[in-house]
Write a protein that binds this DNA or RNA. Structure first.
Lengths: 223, 223
DNA sequence: TAGATTGTTAATCGATTAACAATC
DNA sequence: TAGATTGTTAATCGATTAACAATC
C-alpha cells in the first residue's frame, strides 16, 4: 500500500498492482495455448474473449512486458510467455521457506502451482517434534530452531507464514532477523517488520466478506 | 469486476471493494479493543496509527456504516462494531458448504475465523469414500452426490470450491444447478457460471507473484 | 488492397487524499 | 474556552477505458 519512496532507478514507471495480478493469469492461459500447439499468434481480442477481460486492458497489461504485437496478426505466443517470465524474473526461481506445517501449510506445500510462478518452497519448519523429520509433498519438515542457520546458509529471501496466530509475530521476527526479506502472512494477525522487510497479508476473511456482501446485494435486488 | 447493471434500489451508492476489504480489519481490531475494555471511544487517528492506515481513509471507510463519530471524542467502539456487523449483514450468519476436503479444504474448515465474519461452513463434501463419514474440525464430510439435495433442503447459497483442478468446472456446475449463488473458487481454473451466480476467484499464485516482484524490485534498488 | 489489430495519446472513472468549517 | 476530531466538499492520483492513426 504505502510506497516507501525508495529510489529504484531501473524501473522508471511504477507497475500497477492489478496488472501484476493479471500477468499470471495471462501466463497460465498462454502456456495452455502453447501446449495445444495450434496457434502461434494470438490477438488481444482473442485473449480478452477467453479470459473475460476487455481487449484494451489486455493490450495495456501486455505492454509492460515490452513484447511488441503485430497489427492484424497479434502477439507471438512464445514471445509473450518468455516476456512475462522475464518481466517477473522467473528465469531465476526464487526459493522460499514455509513455517507452520499445519493444514494450510500442507496445502501450500502441495500446491505445485507456485513453482510454475517462479517460486519454489524448498523446505518447511515446525516446532512440533512429531512433524519434524517427516515429509509433506516431498518437502522436509525441519525444526524451527534450524531456520536462522538455513536462511543464512542458503540465502533464502521469501518466507511463508502459516503458524497459529499466537506465534505469528515471534515467527516473523525470527524470519526477519535471519535475513528473510519478504513475508507472506496467512495468519490473521497484523505483523510488524523492519522497513526493509516486505510483508504481504493474505486476508482470506476479507475475500469472503466481499463475496458474501455481493451475494446479499444480489439477493436483495431480486426480492 | 463487471457490474452487470442489475438494479439495486436499496444501496444508492456502490460500495468500493477496497473499503469492503478493510472493514473486517477494523472489525477485528475493534473487537480486540472492546475485549480489553479500557477504551469506550476511539478516534480515526488512533485506529489509523495502530492499523497503518491514514486517518482520513479510516473516516471515509467508517462513514459507510453510517455510525456517527463525535468531534474530539471519536467513535463509540461498541457502536462501530455493531455498525460493521449490520452493514455486512452478520446479524444473520450465512451458511456455506465446502466441496473438496483435501489439505486446503481442511485448512479452511479448521479456520474458525470465518464464523466471526458472518459465514459458517456447516458441512463438507468429497467423492473419496475414505473421507466420507469422517469429520474435520467438527464438520461432517458427506458424499458429493448428496450435495444437490442438501443445498435445496437447507437453502444454502455459498459454496467453497477446493477440489482438484480437473473437477473444478463440473463441481461448480453441480453447485450452481443445485441453487448455490456464490462460489469461492480456490482452484486455478477459470470457472464459467450462469450470470446469476457470483464467482470469486482466490488467486493465491497472483498474490505470490506480487510479493516476489516487490522483493525483486527492492533487492535491485539496493545493489 | 482492405481491414483487423496494434501502440499511443487522451478522456473517464473511481478511489484516495486534502482542506476546512462545524462541533463536542 | 481551546483544540482535537468529525463530516463534507473539493483536489489529486492512478487505473481503466476510449479514440484513432499507423501498419502488417
Amino acid at each position: 500500500m504505502a510506497d516507501d519512496g525508495k529510489k529504484n532507478a531501473q524501473s522508471i514507471k511504477p507497475i500497477p498492482e492489478p496488472t501484476l495480478r493479471r500477468l499470471p493469469v495471462y501466463y497460465q492461459y498462454l502456456k495452455k495455448i502453447n501446449k495445444e500447439g495450434k496457434i502461434d499468434f494470438i490477438s488481444a481480442t482473442q485473449i480478452g474473449t477467453d479470459l473475460n477481460i476487455i481487449p484494451i486492458q489486455v493490450r495495456k497489461d501486455l505492454e509492460i512486458t515490452e513484447i511488441p504485437g503485430r497489427p492484424k496478426l497479434g502477439y507471438s505466443v512464445t514471445e509473450l510467455i518468455k516476456g512475462i517470465e522475464d518481466f517477473l524474473g522467473w528465469n531465476n526461481i526464487t526459493d522460499a521457506f514455509l513455517v507452520g506445517a499445519g493444514n494450510l501449510g500442507s496445502a501450500l506445500l502441495g500446491y505445485n502451482g507456485f513453482r510454475e510462478y517462479g517460486v519454489n518452497i524448498i523446505a518447511a519448519f515446525d516446532n512440533d517434534e512429531k512433524k519434524v523429520g517427516t515429509e509433506i509433498a516431498g518437502k522436509k519438515i525441519l525444526h524451527v530452531d534450524k531456520l536462522p542457520d538455513m536462511v543464512k546458509r542458503m540465502g533464502i529471501k521469501i518466507g511463508i507464514l502459516t503458524v497459529p496466530a499466537a506465534y505469528a509475530q515471534e515467527t516473523a521476527d525470527l524470519m526477519a532477523d535471519a535475513g528473510i526479506r519478504a513475508i507472506w502472512n496467512f495468519t490473521h494477525v497484523k505483523i510488524s517488520t523492519p522497513p526493509d522487510v516486505i510483508i504481504q497479508h493474505e486476508n482470506l476473511a476479507a475475500s469472503l466478506v466481499v463475496l458474501s456482501k455481493k451475494l446479499k446485494i444480489m439477493l436483495q435486488a431480486e426480492n
